[in-house]
């Protein structure tokens, strides 16, 4: 990587001010940014280290829920008593997201900003990747695409968003709090990432100089679960994942929210399934029918048809696990 100027921000205003400059990048946990710089995905001239913004590393109760400061380390969020008790889906997603070491570095605000794991995107020398060089094409579309998207892809980009916590947040209808010199924006996690039909080169809606300051989750979801499917037991990105929260009336589903991970460029809510699940009994065959309905718009690439089956089964399993929590 080339050299850069390093500044430690001493306030959020200072961070936004510095972060707005040409060639600036915000450094939080560093677990992604430093790799991007090594690979050549980013080459900032100014790094704004926000580690000293102490007020952003707290978990606070807000009305009807929690605000998780953006700089909270992943392990601290996962092991927080209120998160473990009221939001097991989030705790579980975080604990499965990376190694213990990485979870000590990575921040909850930075995690949804991680970029796709597409091997063509992660090459040092790129031939065709619209996320590296807009307009250059998508080598994965006709290349090795076994781990790529089954929802919302276009031939311009078939990559998937790899964040685990973002999937849990999407199922929790979490809101990302974003600040800039222009003020504060509240962005639902479900809409935080950009699908390729809108812009194949984009990752998220976060603009330059904008700073994620926290993520808010509201209604506790004790009946919730996160299932991550991967070849190895730990420390690996998902083939698919499923986050489920259930509001139960005995054995009957009053309300369900289901988000799938690693199937699209954003956590993918199965909205049709969620509608159909209302009023259905756990363990009945209605559940599988409802899940199938959510896959009506799934489309396989040349090498990943299995992911449709796998994601469907993962969703079903996660519903079972959530009901048992």
């Amino acid at each position: 990587m080339h050299n850069f100027v390093y500044e430690r921000a001493n306030s959020a205003d200072n961070a936004m001010d510095l972060g707005h400059r040409d060639g600036a990048a915000i450094l939080a946990g560093g677990t992604e940014l430093l790799n991007w710089m090594r690979i050549g995905i980013e080459s900032p001239d100014l790094l704004v280290d926000i580690r000293d913004l102490g007020h952003l590393d707290r978990i606070e109760e807000i009305e009807g829920g929690l605000r998780i400061g953006a700089l909270c380390r992943l392990n601290d969020v996962a092991c927080h008593p209120a998160i473990k008790r009221d939001f097991p889906v989030l705790s579980s997603a975080i604990l499965q997201s990376a190694s213990a070491q990485l979870r000590n570095l990575a921040t909850i605000g930075g995690n949804p900003l991680q970029r796709v794991r597409c091997p063509y995107f992660r090459e040092e020398t790129v031939n065709a990747c619209n996320k590296r060089h807009a307009g250059s094409g998508c080598a994965a579309y006709e290349g090795h695409n076994e781990r790529m998207a089954i929802f919302g892809w276009t031939p311009e980009c078939v990559a998937v968003q790899p964040s685990d916590p973002a999937v849990a947040f999407a199922a929790l209808d979490a809101v990302v709090i974003v600040q800039s010199t222009d003020g504060t924006r509240r962005i639902p996690m479900r809409e935080f990432h950009v699908l390729p039909d809108e812009d194949p080169s984009a990752h998220s809606v976060l603009g330059r100089g904008e700073l994620i300051t926290g993520i808010e989750i509201s209604t506790p979801a004790p009946h919730s679960a996160y299932l991550k499917v991967r070849e190895r037991q730990s420390y690996e990105y998902a083939l698919v994942s499923a986050a489920v929260t259930l509001d139960l009336d005995g054995e009957t589903i009053r309300n369900a929210r289901i988000a799938l991970g690693s199937v699209a460029m954003r956590p993918w809510r199965l909205l049709a399934t969620e509608d159909l699940l209302v009023g259905k009994r756990l363990g009945s065959k209605d559940i599988a029918e409802a899940v199938d309905a959510g896959f009506a718009e799934a489309r396989a690439l040349s090498g990943n048809a299995y992911k449709i089956t796998l994601a469907r089964n993962a969703a079903l399993r996660a519903i079972e696990l959530a009901s048992e929590n």
Binding site: R117, P119, Y120, R122, E123, N127, A139, E142, G143, H144, E231, R232, Q233, S234, Y235, E236, Y237
Partner: peptide, 20 residues
């Protein structure tokens, strides 16, 4: 098409971990 190893790192090429 490109004659390249498509993943050249320990995140893209899994090897067993302790939990396995």
């Amino acid at each position: 098409e490109r004659g390249r190893w498509i993943s050249r790192d320990l995140a893209g090429v899994p090897i067993p971990v302790n939990a396995d």
